[in-house]
Structure formats: C-alpha cells, structure tokens
Design a protein around this nucleic acid. Structure first.
Lengths: 225, 225
DNA sequence: AGTAAATCTTAAGCCAATTTTAAGAATCCT
DNA sequence: AGGATTCTTAAAATTGGCTTAAGATTTACT
C-alpha cells in the first residue's frame, strides 16, 4: 500500500509519513511540485492515495492534480490546504481531487479520510492468499491451514509483497525497493535472512518450500489459480 | 536487450546494473565520459538504451550525447541528473536526449521510462513462444507442450534471445554480445555448451532439434507463423 | 530514565548450482 | 582425405544463496 505525499513543509511531510508508516503504508515524499508530478506519473499504478499540498513551489497542487487526472481517473487524491485559502464552492468544480483536509489537521482525521477513499475500490484487497497461506492486512494476521502464525513487521511486509505478486518473479532489486525502501546499490544478505525466517515458519519438512528461489534473479511464491 | 550505463558513481551504476540484469538485460558500464563515448560509438547498433550521467569526469554528458547523435538519431538516451542541476527549458532544446530522470530515482521509475522509450508495451514483452515452446518473463518459466522445464539463468537468457529473434539467424558474435557481454572472448566454446544443454532439455529423440545450426554463422529457432 | 526483550541488520563461512574452460570426438564440406 | 567447425563431456572456477550468530536498533515495560 503506497502513498505519495507532495508537500514542501518538511515537518508536516515527516509527521504524516511516520504516522502512515506505522499503519503499514509505504510512503514517498516529494518536496516540490515538479518532482511530485514526476513521481506520480511514473508510478501512477503503484499509489493507493496521493496527498497534495495546495500551495507548492514549482507547480501548484491544482495543476499537478489535473495532470494526474489525465493519466488516471481512479487514483484517490486528497488536498492538504492551509486554512481559508480555499473557496469550497470552486474547489468542487475545478479540481479532480476526491477530498481535501484543512491544515492543521489531526492524523486521525487524515487517516479516516484515506480509509474512506481506499474502501471504494479496495475492500477485497485486504486479504491475500495462496494455497494454504492467508494474509489479512486489516487484521494484520497470517495463517497457514487456518492456524495463526506470528510474523514480525518485516516478515509480514515481505510475505505481503510476495502474495501481491503471487505467480510472478519477485526480483531482488524490486523487493529491496518495495519492502525496504532502498533505492541504491545494496550489498546485504538481508533478503536471504528474511526468506530464511519465513521458510522456517511456513515450511514443513520434506515438502517443497512455499517460496521458490530463482537463482540470480529473486524469488517466487506460486499462485494456486 | 543491451543497455549502456555511463556513470562514475559506482554505487548507482551497480544498483542499476543489478536491477536491469534481473530484468534480463545485458549491461555494460563505463565509469567516465571518454570510455562511455567510445563504447557507444563502437556498438551503437547493439544498444537498446543508453543511460548517461549528466556530470561526468573527462567529458560531460551533453557532449557525449551530441556525439552519439551524430552516429545515430534513433538510439534512446536517458540522462541521469543530480537534483536541480538541470534547467529544464534549455534541456529540451539543447540536448539530443529523449528523457531524463532526477537522482535519486527508484529503479521502478527508471525501468518504466526505459520501457516507454523502447516502445514496448509491457504485456507484449512478457511472453514469447514458437511451436510448442513458451517462455514467460514475468513468471520466469519456460514450458514445452505445457510442461514446465527448468532452466538456469544463462539458458533462459539464450532461449529468450532466440525467441525474440525467431525465424532469424542469430550470429555467434551477436549472441555473445547480447547474452554474455561485450568483452567476452569470442573464441570460447561457451555458446556450443549452452546450445547443447538447451537441446538436451527440449529435444526429443528422432525429431529435429528446436535449434537449427547454421554452419559458419550461428543458429536459428524456427518461427511458427 | 533505565533495563530487558524483541526485532532488524550485518557479516562470515559453507555449500551447491551454475558458469566457464578445455580437450577429444564427431560431423561437415571442398 | 583433411581442415574447419560443431558437439559432447567432464572438470575447474566462480557465483550466489543458505545459515548462523553476533552486533545494532527499536520497542515495551518498570
């Protein structure tokens, strides 16, 4: 679940990011309009919600929103506006945004609005499964053959990534970017370690592992369809 | 599918290389402008995309790009630029590049741009087949008559190259350049060895091999169209 | 705040699979 | 036939993943 924040005030951006990360979202921040638009357009299919500051250096929020709407009619956009800068009547007509929230806002408020917008088309996305494994994002639980299995945050995130891509190869570079948020050369065996611990928790002796290794490329979890 | 990276920061170059290799590209790196230009000009027809750092020791990216453009108007060039060093207006006019991307960038972002420039729609790129053989890049599986066949990375890459060029002769030097890399010893019998192992995995006794030898030239896989 | 526990990350050695080299056998072509 | 090219096999070299354990870091609790 990925969210883009386009916001030049670092303190607000960080505050929102921290909160959303605790809720299990993966968060990108752009601190000006131009980068924000670029990120949005490049990854339009990846974002579940986009949070747009109304007043931005480089390019204002409305313009960004219009450009986003050219690419995607569906991605939810929420404006963050300073108090009293918006003429509500105009707002509704002019922008392609789905909602807006006035600063200062409480995190709870923001989260509630995000949830509302995401529920429109993503209710079914809260549960992923393959074979005997089931993962419920909402409840943050995982079960195998109906029996709950305790996972740490990272284990959960990794398994979720696999299940979202079941049947497809998950390349190491992509895993590092999506589960760990690292965008540079990374020489670490961290993936191996977590694969190992997932296997320890899910695999049964004698049977094939739920996670298949594809040497030199990455890993894959089979689809049951 | 070959890509040239001209980039002096090893960490970036390696990160991009690893990611692209996992995606099945064959990657060359030059760590300064002079070598980069030379590689580009020597093999201009081989590269599907060239990634150019904007600021380079020896010779800057713009100069390299101009020289590349003298040789080839068609090869896509993407600039990698440090944040805020580019005047966008000038950029479009002055350089012969097709696109640029600001550092730091995510690998997904870069890959999306590469795919756009290669004008290959992702869905189209994912499955190759001829006769009874089918290769799926996304799932990283190969099947003959619907039955999966296990291939190593190099076997997979070689078969992919044949299927991308089905019906056409694949010359030995081209195979070496595209599946292995530029600097590979041409006298090696490595292709023979891999052809042999592909045949062992796909051919049936009595029937003609899926791969035809064209003596003195190379190999070919028949098209079914 | 201080401490304990859990989790995350790094690092190193080991092992197995893959890649590459090499060399003799087989085949093709003039 | 004889040289060149390709095929086949096996052994050497290399790479990459697995596993473990220990060091960092974060979280939870007193």
């Amino acid at each position: 679940m990925r969210i883009l924040i386009v916001e030049d005030e670092t303190s607000i951006a960080n505050f929102v990011r921290d909160g959303l990360e605790e809720e299990g979202f993966s968060v990108d921040i752009a601190d000006n309009g131009r980068n924000g638009l670029q990120l949005a357009l490049d990854n339009i299919a990846e974002y579940d919600v986009i949070l747009l500051d109304w007043m931005l250096p480089g390019m204002n929020g409305i313009e960004i929103c219009r450009n986003i709407r050219k690419e995607s009619k569906s991605v939810p956009v929420i404006f963050l506006t300073a108090k009293d800068t918006v003429d509500d009547a105009v707002f509704g007509l002019e922008s392609g945004a789905n909602d807006y929230i006035r600063k200062p806002f409480s995190f709870e408020e923001l989260l509630a609005r995000i949830r509302v917008l995401m529920r429109k088309d993503e209710t079914e996305l809260l549960v992923f499964s393959t074979g005997s494994v089931e993962l419920n994002i909402d409840k943050h639980i995982v079960a195998k053959d109906g029996k709950p299995i305790e996972l740490t945050q990272k284990e959960f995130a990794l398994l979720e990534y696999f299940l979202r891509n079941k049947g497809k190869v998950c390349r190491r570079t992509r895993i590092i970017e999506n589960v760990w948020d690292l965008h540079f050369d990374y020489d670490s065996s961290i993936i191996d370690v977590y694969i190992n611990s997932l296997r320890k928790k899910f695999d049964e002796p004698g049977k094939t592992s739920i996670i298949t290794t594809i040497r030199g490329i990455g890993y894959k979890i089979e689809s049951d369809e």
